[in-house]
């Protein structure tokens, strides 16, 4: 059974993966000599669902600004479409085999079974590819928010008065709140619990460092006209907190891009 990257993908694909495995097993054990039932109706249902997916997929990439999504979606859609066509061919071949009068399978029956398995596997693989393409787009969306927050931290160096500080905090807070929510949602969906633990830890550290950053900025504002040790300490603290938060966000970006099997790279 494949390892699914997210619970959403797992929930969608696991039942079909199980059924395809069963069919493959029956075929490999040579136990699929029975005449197949008429599969044209279920195959037409699959074909209609594929047509809908292709339409939805094409609509989604038409509107997106994500160039990678635009590039990666068509091959996955093509794989699903080709596989659906293979299922139709399978049903035509199997209908010839249904007319046989002996226990022995016809060449069409054998070919039809092969196409049925290849088509079902292709649908599974193509749908999986497509879901992963969209999942990667979602990861890029979260990474963009990460980079925006990380870039905004540079503004801390120009905070010189109380008014600047208020603007800085007012601008930083929505970004970090959005980021925390997105990371929380992502953690709920990931299947690799090592990645979840690492992401949660990094995000908790970001949240823990923010009050320290604000305090250091406040201390700098209070000493802005009084150069000396207190001001130096405030600058040192500001640099420490911005560096820490920035590094934690960089690590979050790295962790978000890992796939479910990348366990060795968690540390």
């Amino acid at each position: 059974m494949p390892v699914f990257h997210t619970k959403t993908i797992q929930m969608i694909l696991e039942p079909v993966a199980e059924q395809v495995s069963t069919l493959v097993l029956i075929h490999e054990q040579g136990k699929d000599g029975n005449q197949m039932p008429d599969l044209i109706n279920p195959i037409l249902t699959v074909k209609a669902a594929v047509s809908n997916l292709v339409k939805v997929g094409k609509d989604q990439i038409k509107d997106t600004k994500d160039e990678i999504l635009k590039l990666d979606t068509p091959p996955a859609l093509e794989k699903v479409e080709t596989s659906a066509d293979m299922l139709v061919q399978a049903s035509q071949l199997l209908s010839i085999d249904q007319k046989r009068e002996t226990a022995e399978m016809t060449p069409e029956g054998m070919e039809g079974r092969k196409k049925l398995i290849a088509g079902s596997r292709g649908i599974l693989q193509g749908t999986s590819d497509l879901l992963l393409v969209f999942d990667e787009a979602e990861v890029r969306r979260i990474c963009k928010v990460c980079r925006n927050v990380r870039d905004y931290l540079n503004q801390s160096s120009i905070v010189a008065g109380m008014e600047d500080l208020v603007v800085f905090v007012k601008s930083l807070t929505p970004g970090t709140t959005t980021l925390a929510r997105m990371i929380g949602d992502r953690c709920k969906d990931l299947t690799n619990q090592n990645h979840v633990a690492a992401l949660t830890e990094e995000m908790d550290q970001v949240k823990a460092y923010i009050p320290g950053l604000i305090s250091s900025l406040k201390a700098f504002v209070q000493t802005v006209d009084k150069p000396g040790k207190a001001q130096e300490a405030a600058i040192g603290n500001r640099e420490y907190y911005t560096t820490q938060i920035s590094e934690r966000i960089t690590e979050i970006i790295r962790l978000l891009q890992l796939v479910s099997t990348d366990d060795a790279n968690t540390d």
């Binding site: 959403t8 969608i12 694909l13 039942p15 079909v16 059924q19 395809v20 069963t22 069919l23 029956i26 136990k31 699929d32 000599g33 029975n34 005449q35 197949m36 039932p37 599969l39 279920p42 195959i43 249902t45 699959v46 209609a48 669902a49 594929v50 809908n52 997916l53 939805v56 997929g57 609509d59 989604q60 699903v80 299922l87 049925l116 079902s120 649908i123 599974l124 749908t127 497509l130 879901l131 969209f134």
Partner: peptide, 29 residues
């Protein structure tokens, strides 16, 4: 969301198809 719904429909339809094919073969086992 639309992609997820469309993918769910494919998965459901393919599961039903493969299940029907397997069931017919299992009768022989």
């Amino acid at each position: 969301e639309q992609i997820l719904e469309a993918a769910k429909s494919i998965a459901t339809a393919t599961t039903a198809l493969v299940k029907a094919a397997s069931a017919a073969q299992k009768e022989l086992v």
